[in-house]
Design a protein around this nucleic acid. Sequence first.
DNA 1: CGTTTTTGACCTGCGC
DNA 2: GCGCAGGTCAAAAACG
Length: 352
Amino acid sequence: MANLDTSSDHHHHQLELANNINLSSIFDAPLSSPFPYSYLEEPNPFLDLLSQDHHQFASSSNSSSFSFDAFPLENNNTNLFNTDLPLSQPSTTKATSSEVVNTATTSPNSTSVSSSSKEAVNDNTDKEVTLKDPEEGDQQEQKDTKPQLKAKTKNQKKAREARFAFLTRSDIDNLDDGYRWRKYGQKAVKNSPYPRSYYRCTTVGCGVKKRVERSSDDPYIVMTTYEGQHTHPFPMTRRHIAMFTSPILNHGATTASSSSFSIPQPRYLLTQHHQPYSSMYNNSLSMINQSSSDGTFANPGSSSFPVFSYDVSLASTSTTSAIRDHGLLQDILPSQIMSNTIDTRTNEKDRI
DNA sequence: CGTTTTTGACCTGCGC
DNA sequence: GCGCAGGTCAAAAACG
């Protein structure tokens, strides 16, 4: 986890960007269960975008909170967060917008579990192999399964795993979300100078994956997409414990202090007590979507996805540029958001 | 020495 | 069928 270790200087940017905030970014929130708290205390412009729908999102435990695991399971046309994201979508221009925004046709499928891909629980005996233990079985299995994979894809399309994506403004790609990840691949992204990195949870038996890529237009915008659900508890370390018990979580705190991780906090971070974890290393986490393969929401609260919350004060202008990314970013961002963010560009300039 | 990262090759799905 | 792009594998290198 050199990730954290290298995160020291990206904070400079956070400071610089403290004032470059607009409504364009989608939400702020972070990862799965590692973030037990979510909190929204300000009027949320993004939710305004959702107009009539936003009230649905505020139904979590706290009336003033906005937590993503409170998202309705059902979709409708205005649900910007539900997207039907193909695992591989060659042409970003076609399928993206329209598909993403509306079609998330939901075939209620209790969580993606039942239908899911090879990494997840699956009911298909022939895909299985990979399932039991992606970690240790990897190498060995691989040889054995390759033929099987071919065979299986003939009969059925690869099921998609639940996904959960969010934007982050940070200099570092692989943000520390509390889980341990091992990088297993990197690919160049079309129309982007920045590569996309693929990570897998290192916990034995856990097939959760995440991929990280930067916006081609704004290098500080990082899009992280989680796929799958952790099959193990959040690996709470001393550092995390310190984080969760730090004053920042108790409101009024002005710094995110922890015994082992102490860094200068951007001004606007002071309001981030609702995202204790993410604030440790970046200042803007924006959830973009959360969906399962079939367009339904997988319940992140079940412990795979971080519980994120949105804080407009953290939104950053550069999200705007992120939208033009032609890689995964664009695949995930709903067109409505895109247009909205683009519209806000002028404001952003004015501000700067 | 165990773990993680790098990176080229390979596989798969999709559009034309 | 072909080409392209996304995704994954796995050997080698790097790291701690």
